[in-house]
Amino acid sequence: MDLNVLWFVLIIVLFTGFFVLEGFDYGVGMLLIGRKEYDRSMMIRAIGPVWDGNEVWMITAGGAMFAAFPHVYATMFSTFYFALFLMLLGLIFRGVAFELRGKYPSSDWRLGWDGAIVFGSLVPALLWGVAVTNLLQGLPIDAYMHYAGNFGDLLSPYTILGGLTFIFVFIFHGASFLMLRLGDEGLLLDLKRKSIKFGVIAAILYVGLMAMSIVSTDIMSKGFFGLSSFACGALCFVMAINAMYQGRAIAAFALTSMAIASTVVQFFVALFPRLMVSSLNPEWSLTIYNAASTPHTLMIMTVAAVIFVPLVLFYQAWTYRLFKARVMPSDLKHY
């Protein structure tokens, strides 16, 4: 395995970390819609100690992309210019909202910031779905690795389905996380009922996305691998719904996490060895070779990743252990 392939794998690892961890934060954020203040405070408290660390997975994935595949970073970020602007607005409001909502004693103040959290969770979830499907489908990238389209070109039935699927997948994932973390029986019962509904919607959308991917992308050119992880993801969702129904919260969360991880793997396997597909000319696609940094830089980054990724996993796992007790109403004094 050469360094380029290794970095392709490491990028998969970082994005898996991001979507699995930040996925439930986005989900919890979207689940705040229409809830009363006590519920909202409890739900936010459940992700309070960890959301910030989870978000760093995205920043690291972005930074690693910059370091390992600078042309992909350059092309992708300038291609998705306006979409990323919207995503940044969402992330800005969301990040500030988590800190500020509890800093002023007023229900209206909290309601406003909770609205910002909803916005800041919904928009990134939607846009990630749109981005991922666009990347699978291919983009009008010219011979100089420049995007030759506009924001409107990024929206099609397929990519909007991608966005919707991501939204409901994260909502379901967030609900299964909350089932593990909340200690209020009434709230749990209500969430359980709703999360099964969301799970069913997520599973239907997911299968729809899988079907449309066969039609709209070259995913099947990889043969068996073209669809195996997708199928695995779909199976996980169905099993997660069942586990949720039976009240096995740990299993449900493990399964939604696995479903998301399989989807990330599926996405990258379908692309390999490309990272950005040119719809104008296959020769113009950005691959792990023509878009990469030099072996020298990749080597340095490999050493750093081998040391620090396990270390980060270790202390983040420790954090989750430290905060494993379910969130009780009495914990809300911090807010």
Binding site: G63, A67, M301
Partner: peptide, 8 residues
């Protein structure tokens, strides 16, 4: 890119 990734 390297210092940026290392920063994160």
């Amino acid at each position: 890119g390297a210092p940026l990734a290392l920063e994160a």
